[in-house]
Simulated scan of single mutants.
Amino acid sequence: MSTKHPITIDLNADVGEGFGVYRLGADEELLPLVTSANIACGFHAGDPATMRTTVRLCLQHGVGIGAHPGLPDREGFGRREMAITPREAYDLIVYQVGALQAMAHTEGGTVRHVKPHGALYNMSATNAALAEAIAEAVYRLDPSLVLYGLAGSESVRAGRRFNLCTADEAFADRRYNPDGTLVPRSRPDALLHDPQEAVVQVRALLAAGRAQTVCVHGDTPEALAFARAVRVALLADGLQIKHNILAGRKERV
């Protein structure tokens, strides 16, 4: 890639996913490596104290604050599908994002984006009705929020119909099906484990024009190695790494 005309990319991570006395991930080490954080909002993981601590870390490191609302399934970490209606999806988003907005406000920060978590993310990627409900909830909460969704998915299309800024997302640590969906976590080959393999995948996805933001899951053992490797590779390719890159850019479909 040319260094004369660098492309801007966002590097995000799912964080704040501990609760009570339980800690998950190395958020303090991971956040300085990324530009956007998707903070668990208390349903699949997270709690008020963890949310507040994570918001403070984001402000300390200049990381964009994002909400990561999920299904009400702590035991399954929000990664098991549930038969919810679009109205229930709408309420889940409003409730959880609103909680993080309040927490961020009291700490002097602002929630900049929303990225559904786990099964809710995957369900809304292919279910137009769920995607529409989630996009409407985000719009009614704050039309300036950026909605993150799987590249080329129903989630992104729904966000654009509501005139939201949207970010097509690619994953550094997940394998893909031929149709662009993610390999289910029930399969043993769902995750990548080699940081260099992740770099190859990210470069291929970006070269294909399939993403404006790249995700590293904070709960994986390789999260720090992946974030470091991807960051180094993107900078070496001449990219500028910044959060909320689509602010002010909206598109109707």
Rank of each mutant, 00 (worst) to 15 (best):
T3S: 13
P6H: 01
V15I: 15
G18L: 07
G18E: 03
F19A: 10
D27T: 08
L31V: 05
T35F: 02
T35V: 09
C41E: 01
A45M: 03
P48H: 08
T54W: 03
Q60K: 15
G62M: 08
G64T: 14
G66R: 00
H68S: 05
H68L: 06
P69R: 05
P72A: 11
R74L: 10
R80E: 08
A83S: 15
R87S: 14
D91H: 14
I93K: 03
V94P: 06
Q96A: 07
A99V: 12
A99F: 08
A104N: 05
V111L: 09
R112C: 13
K115C: 04
H117E: 07
G118S: 07
A119I: 09
N122T: 04
A135Y: 00
E136Y: 11
V138T: 02
R140T: 15
V146T: 15
V146K: 07
G149W: 01
L150M: 11
L150C: 08
G152M: 08
R160I: 11
N163W: 14
A170S: 12
A172V: 00
R174N: 01
L182H: 07
L191N: 09
A198N: 02
V199R: 00
A204Y: 00
V214E: 01
T220S: 09
L224I: 15
F226V: 03
R228H: 11
R228L: 10
A229I: 02
A229G: 05
V232L: 12
I245F: 04
I245N: 03
A247C: 14
E251G: 12
